[in-house]
Nucleic acid binder design. Sequence first.
DNA 1: TTCGGTTCACGAACGCCGTTCGCTCCCCGC
DNA 2: GCGGGGAGCGAACGGCGTTCGTGAACCGAA
Lengths: 231, 231
Amino acid sequence: MPEPPWRTPRKDVTRRSLSRETIVDAALGVLRADGIDGVSMRRVASELGTGPASLYAHVAHKDELLELLFDEVAAEIPLPEPDPARWREQVTQLWMDSRAAMQRYRDIARVALGSVPLGPSSMRLAEVTMVLLRMGGVPDQAVAWAVDVVGLYVSASAVEGAIVEDRKAGEGQDPAHYYRQVATYFASLPPERFPTFVGLLPLLAKGDADERFRFGLDLLVGGLAALAEES
Amino acid sequence: MPEPPWRTPRKDVTRRSLSRETIVDAALGVLRADGIDGVSMRRVASELGTGPASLYAHVAHKDELLELLFDEVAAEIPLPEPDPARWREQVTQLWMDSRAAMQRYRDIARVALGSVPLGPSSMRLAEVTMVLLRMGGVPDQAVAWAVDVVGLYVSASAVEGAIVEDRKAGEGQDPAHYYRQVATYFASLPPERFPTFVGLLPLLAKGDADERFRFGLDLLVGGLAALAEES
DNA sequence: TTCGGTTCACGAACGCCGTTCGCTCCCCGC
DNA sequence: GCGGGGAGCGAACGGCGTTCGTGAACCGAA
């Protein structure tokens, strides 16, 4: 039913429609579609049919929005019911799940590396991690530091994964193109200057991102287990 | 000696004055002064008395400039003369030196996490790392993956260090202000929801950045050494 | 020595960005 | 019924990376 033309047109959008929640939801959508660089105040606002200024009533600045976003992702990480007999398996799984959750949201991990995550879900994650490690007999000081160290490793790995994923999809259409480029570069290296590197080339490319992540994770968890035993 | 006013004024800057080297030098200066966010094409150009367009004759885009910058920093990392008897000590030192070099240039480490460093100095670093690990008897596949994993950890730790450093210096003048803020937040956490976290609070704050970095590094190197022995 | 071509320098502009200002208008409590 | 506070938002500020087109400087050939 069209309005008579002499009526002053009213916005059909219900007023008071914005909220932290709707904003974060919209931002999550943009994040999934275009990655963290796509998440601009303007873009999120236009997704909600408004301008960037409107967001500032609900969010102090972009960084705050990004932290809310990260915590939303952290909320998706499944937390285990701590079982003393399987602590090692459980921490490993928890951290693999953390990385997987970040990977699902492109390069959201960059947020974690650009600030100390202090949201409720991030804190719960830290709490559960500590419980598991303590249960395994890891010394308290090591527990405290391990949360930090492993968080760093998991986030960094997720960031790297997102970059490679983007590079594969970027500009060209052939996902293998990026690998071929790097492989060509490596193959062109002077063997007399980089003998070991060139010698290990086939092994460098081996394994997918998950395997390589798992390798580092096992080193860290193994080290923590060793600390637990010697104490 | 002033010019007669009827002469068309000439630029007193010698033409052909720009080069990759002068640009990278200027950018390094900005980096030290204002961190990576201060390094904009405009800022670097104005440091050289010109406009941003002039840089594009020597550098394809900003990312390329940042990679050149990173490699310059990597060149400052002292490389050891490999000694089989001291391989473990030497890798540890090498990685601590890597982190220190990045720390000297604020948040340059963000560049390493935002791309795979392939510059000559970065490659030399990888080569030497591999030589040391192989010398220690670490299995080849582990050597190949370890370069990646440890690089991630070192860079991530440097990024985190730079953030904390910036937060300490940021806006307020009191460096302790930031710590007090975080401590207050932690102290306000409900102990019934985060019992372990709150219980370990004193230990979380313990140790400076170097000690905490060293902790994670020892976990990784220890894990690699264990792999070396069992093979 | 002159002349053409190539290369570098660079002013101006395009289309983004985060954030602020100030105005309008709605909703809630009185 | 009404006043005040807060949400919504158009416009603007100052910054960004990058491109385009113009012009000056240099170099080799004629």
